[in-house]
Every structure is written in structure tokens, then in C-alpha cells.
Design a protein around this nucleic acid. Sequence first.
DNA 1: TCCTTATGTACAA
DNA 2: TGTACCTAAGGAC
Length: 269
Amino acid sequence: MPEGHTIHRLALDYGGHFADRAVQVTSPQGKFSDSAALLNGTELTRTEAHGKHLFLGFRDADWVHIHLGLFGKVDFGDAPAPPPTDTVRLRLANDTSYVDLRGPTTCALITDTEKRAVHDRLGPDPLRPDSDPAPAYRRVSRSRTTVAALLMDQKVIAGVGNVYRAEVLFRHGIDPYRAGRDITPAEWDAIWADLVELMQEGVRNNRIDTVRPEHTPEAMGRPPRVDDHGGEVYVYRRANLPCHICGSEIRTADLAARNLFWCPNCQRA
DNA sequence: TCCTTATGTACAA
DNA sequence: TGTACCTAAGGAC
């Protein structure tokens, strides 16, 4: 489930289970073996997330840079760790816990300088307290690209993925095909503030919920439902189902090789 | 058992 | 714009 909230939650959980103690580092699958050997027995000193990028800090200046991509998964468990399956790229283990990483797009040992380069190519992250939404709006407001594409562009804003994109545009009644330059400063401020709130809740609950209390099935007098991916949402993966608010059929389309979902009635140009 | 799909990104043409 | 990469779950057969 890798959008930004997942990665920030992972940073907290990796830190909570392994920080400030020597940790056993292995790569059962083999692709990270050389680096794992260098880190094995050293201390995990800090963890950090920026958008969908996770950084595990070892010793003074060694970082493991992890990006889950579309398929990557992380599983925590209590010691003793079971024998790893052959797809485990990275396992950390100590006396109390273990954690397995499978299927990441990126798992690499990098330097401070290389880490800085990653930060430099990412836009502001609604989950980082130091983030400033102004540079993101500067890019959005100068672009003829659709707002739907801009929200997924990690150089513009970091951490938003396909679910938050669809949901935040719905919550603000914005047609996904509107050009970035037609988004007003007030609209951008509202989108940003909403993302901060939604994604912080995502970190706390480890899932994406976007439906306002007044639109829950109970409040609307409708039967309870469970969305496929485990959270309560308005439009994501609800193609051809009735909109929770107006009853129109939710539409779907391809946009830059990803599935876009929106309500043609609630979201206006 | 095979096929499709997925909350992502990078690179080639 | 298309394709490659990484994994696992669910559905069709």
C-alpha cells in the first residue's frame, strides 16, 4: 500500500523496533548481500521519509534508500524470525523483532550526498513539518498539464499517489482534467491543507480513509460497505458504482498509464 | 494453473 | 507513449 502515508509510517515503525541497537542485517534473496554485510551488526541510528522514499540511517553517514514501487511490501514480526522466503531483499533482526522487505523498486546503500540528491528532486511533502506548499503551487499555476497528472508528479508534490489524488480532487469538487494554471491559490491552499490532514490520519491508521462523517453509509441511510483496498473512499476503484453523494456513475479513464476515477457531476471544470 | 491487476518510477524512442 | 522491473493476491478456468 505504498503512498506517502505508508512510507512515513514505516519510518516510525522501523525506528520503533530497531533504533539505537545493533541490528542483524541480511539479504536472503541476495541482491543486497554486499551492502547487508557492510551494515550487519551496526546500529540503526535514525529513519526518515520524504514522499514515497524511505531512508534508514546506519552509523554516521550510511543510508539505506528504499522505494517500494508498486509491488514492494514490508512485514514486521516478533523474534524469533522464521526462515526467510527467497524473495526477502532485506531483513533486519534483533532480540525482539524482525522486518522483511520484498519486491522494492529501490534498496540501495547510499551516502549523505546521494541522499541529498534524492531530496532535491522531490517536491514538498505534506507529511514533513518543514514543507512549504508555495513552490508546488508555483509549478501548478504555470502548467498546462492536468491537475490530476500534476498531483502525481513527485517533483511537484511528494507522497501523493493514485488514491489520494482521486480522493482529494473529489473532496474539492475539481475536475481532474482541469489544467494546473486554472487552479486558484485558494483551491491549492485547500487541497494542501486537506492532504496534510488526510495523510496524517493515514499514518496513524495505516490506511486511507477520505469519506467525511456526514457521507458515511450510516449517515446517508445506506447499507454498510467495505471498499476493496480496506479504506473508506469516495471514488477510487469505484468505477460504474453510484457516487456516495449524488448517485451519478463514477467514471474511470487512463491517464498517463494510471487509472483515474472521478464523479462527473460532483467534480466540475 | 494461468491470467490480470495493483496505492510506482525510470528510461528508450 | 510504450516498456521494463519487482511480487503476490484474486479470479477465471
